[in-house]
Design a protein around this nucleic acid. Structure first.
Lengths: 237, 237
DNA sequence: GTCTATAGCATGATAGAC
DNA sequence: GTCTATCATGCTATAGAC
């Protein structure tokens, strides 16, 4: 009970702090894509964008973006097929919208929340928790980004790969800093960061499995931290 | 040089020992699907199945199975569209063929290679290496299984989920056995097995990344083992 | 055993009424 | 701002010649 409450609080604290709610996200998307979106009234546009994006994520995460027809999408979003095209330039454009937005949010959150922390061990903990809570708060968005990235146009895919590398580099740099202060033992920081990312991504890729086992984000975060801390700890033998 | 040679040898040793080569796999698939395949001549059928499956994996792993057209597949496999249908009942049937085969091979390999090993630490090492070398030897097959499993029909997807759980249970059981002999410290074996699987799957899901860093299967196996061994080792403080 | 030709249909996208 | 109606295209799957 306490754990659940704490978890909910931590996630919703991230939500509040970073402005992660469907209306806010849609307002940003509306601002970023004003040129292509034909609807001028912001209230209406944001409301419909919300329905469209929610429906896209739900359908695409179940059967895949390629297998989702725009008719099915329009129906679920409560619009006609023609009406849908007032909000998107093309089907591919829709995928790019989502991808760009979740990338932007992730990058900004990591930067903001690590800004004031100096100690490597604390930075590592904060980076792990930010990544996990963010993926929990934006679960379908993260799942979409991971599963559909390879089906994007080459230029967009390169951006996705670059962000992925950048995000891994954040972890590697923290580990290197901790090795320089001798808080962490000597080992390959890239490998450690790679393993860490694999565990972080497992949270949202196998979300159902973890929840069925009664594990919540806070509990998983603790486990990941214990894993990486034991790996980075000095051997006393 | 030595490492590369060793890696190649271990993978090709797995290949030989388990009969993992395209002709052998296609012969098994031919036997399992004789009812649906209209071509009676085994030599011809196996040869063409090989081209079809190779092309399917190549195209589907690049752009997704749903986005692959059977025209493109037939062309790449060197058959006409009509000719292709002598080998498959439908497009979905093709995905099931691949899925069932890689599941069968994985399950059999794990069972065989762990049969004669008693010591939990050795069993864990062997299970890790078998999984990794198998995914290396059958790289596009594993990638296909992971990425396309959710797009299968409900009944087939349940089978995929069940096998995934079963494979994780193998690791969890080994860890439990090691805890009973006091070789491993006390901790949640399910969580440990889950983290382990996340690292194992990362090898084939991010294969390009790892290879670009100059890491090969043998090296990655060593890293994974070090990770899990440090996690399972008794704390001496 | 493999081909060409085609049926039958669903899709992404657009035009124009309201 | 949203709709209905429609175009053009590409798809899976099959029929029948060779």
């Amino acid at each position: 009970m306490t754990v659940t409450a704490q978890k909910t609080n931590e996630v919703s604290s991230i939500r509040r702090e970073l402005g992660i709610s469907l209306p806010v996200i849609c307002r940003e998307i509306f601002a970023a894509h004003r040129a292509e979106i034909q609807v001028r009234n912001e209230r209406i546009a944001v409301a419909n964008l919300g329905k469209i994006l929610e429906a896209t994520l739900a359908i695409a995460n179940r059967k895949g973006f390629a297998a989702m027809s725009l008719r099915e999408l329009a129906e679920r979003a409560g619009l006609s097929l023609g009406g849908l095209y007032a909000y998107i330039k093309s089907k591919d454009d829709l995928a790019v919208m989502i991808q760009a937005q979740v990338q932007r949010v992730l990058q900004q959150a990591m930067t903001n929340r690590l800004a004031d922390i100096r100690d490597p061990a604390q930075r590592l903990s904060e980076a792990i928790r930010t990544h996990l809570y963010l993926s929990e708060a934006l679960l379908p968005w993260f799942q979409f980004l991971y599963m559909e990235a390879r089906h994007l146009a080459p230029s967009e895919r390169r951006r996705a790969v670059a962000l992925e590398q950048e995000s891994e580099k954040i972890f590697a740099d923290i580990i290197i800093a901790g090795q320089q202060t001798r808080q962490f033992r000597d080992c390959n920081p890239q490998v450690a960061a790679g393993m860490l990312k694999a565990m972080l991504q497992d949270w949202y890729l196998k979300h159902r499995k973890h929840r069925q086992r009664g594990l919540n984000v806070a509990g998983y975060a603790t486990q990941v931290e214990e894993f990486i801390n034991r790996y980075l700890a000095h051997t006393n033998s």
